[in-house]
Computed example of a mutant assay.
Amino acid sequence: MRLSNVWNLGVKELQGLWRDPALLLLIGYAFSLSIYTAGRASPDNLSNATIGIVDEDRSTLSDRIAAAFMPPHFVPEQITTSEMDSRMDQGRDTFTLDIPPDFERDLLAGHAPAIQLNIDATRMSQAFTGSGYIQQILNAEVAEFLAGYRAPTSLPVALELRSRYNPELDPGWFGAISSVITSITMLSLILTGAALIREKEHGTVEHLLVMPVAAAEIMLSKIWSMGLVVLLASAFAIIVVVQMLLQVPVAGSLPLFILASVLMLFAMTSMGIFLATVAGSMPQFGLLIMLVLLPLQILSGAMTPRESMPRIIQDIMLLAPNTHFVILSQGILFRGAGLSVVWPNLLGLALIGAGLFALALRQFRRFLT
């Protein structure tokens, strides 16, 4: 193997990528706007939920209840009874609270009046979380009104909450880091696979066959060139987008995370070459990416905790490179884990990468012949 061939072929791949505006746009979006929106959007967090309040009682208690729904959790608006159904049908309100007439009088008389709450269940996350918030607000306001004063609840046991690694419980922190991990996994597959299929579609594979280059040299050139692009883009995303723009602190060592990213890129670019040799065209490659990437992302722990999955799924997914990368990234970036903690996952990622490279090289030699 001649390193000069690996270098020159890799430079050729970078030049080909530079002339592909679609892939450049995808890289720019995946490591900038996609991460920023993932950090700002909080689909699982109750934020600015619209609630229409129909006050048919017009009493002191109903005024207190209406005033208790405040931003940033709720955006209240006083509406009439005739507007309830139409606003819900138009999707303008996530919740509609109807306080019936004589509600305060019935409550003081010892009766059990009911308040109607309509929920737009198509907004699943806010509907589930918001209904609990509304129930707590109503119970607190009614209890304080009947007691005649506001006072903190006195309990015999005090629970001191200390949230580690994310003291404000901001879901945007997790969303931003997870988006970086997802972009590294996705782009490393797409770029290497697209580079190989581009060679086939442009007819330059035949040129490579008559050149004095080995299959391993061609593969390594694509791996280092496309991996370098993703590595630089991920470093930009972590430093500029995550730390500067989103103000998400990184607890651990960035060089250690870069090392883990290099091993991850080695494994995923090898997998991308293997998939590209199996696919006959770019549309087929896109379908293979969907079939492979989605299960890897969902079952790796990037979206849901691995502990909530069946044990057999957890064991099988240890053969996937991004499972170890997710564990590594979350340990380093969130909890500040060092090399003494994450070295088993680094070793596992290196072994999986070596296995994928050997498998891809064997398939690539068949592809060239």
Rank of each mutant, 00 (worst) to 15 (best):
V342L: 00
F103T: 01
Q297E: 12
Q247T: 06
E141S: 13
M88S: 04
T204W: 06
M70H: 09
P21A: 07
G91L: 03
A68C: 03
V11G: 13
G336I: 00
G148V: 00
F236W: 01
L349F: 00
Q90D: 15
L33K: 06
S131R: 12
Q78W: 07
F367A: 05
A215H: 09
L138Y: 08
F236N: 01
H111T: 10
W18N: 12
A194L: 09
R40C: 09
P295H: 06
D20S: 08
N48D: 12
D315T: 12
F174K: 07
L9R: 04
S154L: 14
P76M: 02
A127L: 01
P255T: 01
S261K: 02
L17G: 13
S221G: 15
T50Y: 08
L293Y: 12
I289C: 09
M70V: 15
N322R: 04
I134W: 06
L189M: 10
L24A: 14
M1C: 11
L23P: 05
M186S: 11
L23A: 12
I134H: 08
P305S: 13
S154E: 15
I134E: 07
A38G: 05
Q330G: 10
Y36E: 07
Q135I: 08
I223A: 10
S125C: 06
L189V: 02
P21F: 12
T129V: 14
G355V: 00
D44I: 07
L3E: 10
H207W: 07
A68G: 07
L361A: 13
N45T: 12
P295M: 02
A216I: 05
A127Q: 04
L146G: 07
D57L: 00
F236I: 00
I190R: 05
S131D: 13
Q243F: 05
L263Q: 03
I197S: 09
H111D: 14
L146V: 10
L288V: 04
P100N: 04
R198G: 15
A337E: 13
L368A: 03
V213T: 15
Q330M: 12
L155T: 15
R123T: 05
A195K: 04
A354V: 06
R150T: 14
Q297H: 09
L293P: 09
L349Q: 00
R362W: 12
T304C: 06
A302Q: 14
F31Q: 01
Q363C: 11
E104Q: 15
E307F: 11
P43Y: 07
G252A: 01
T192F: 08
Q284N: 04
T153H: 07
